[in-house]
Amino acid sequence: MIFESHLLSMVVYALFVALVMALIRRDDTKARVRYGLLLFAVMTAGALAFGWFMFLFIKK
């Protein structure tokens, strides 16, 4: 089954969103690469951080 891993699904999703947003929101290549990588890193790290934050409230 494709993308059984939620982490991989999230990373691929972030990759596509970062690519499209970088192409839309920046005009030159250098700025696009920088913005795309930043967006990808923020989305991935943010999701991981929020995932661990939710772990604090897990029912035992």
Partner: peptide
């Protein structure tokens, strides 16, 4: 994968 698949389709539409 249902929820993530649905999010992929909706995300593609919004983009």
């Amino acid at each position: 994968t249902f929820e993530f698949g649905t999010a992929y389709i909706a995300g593609a539409g919004l983009l």
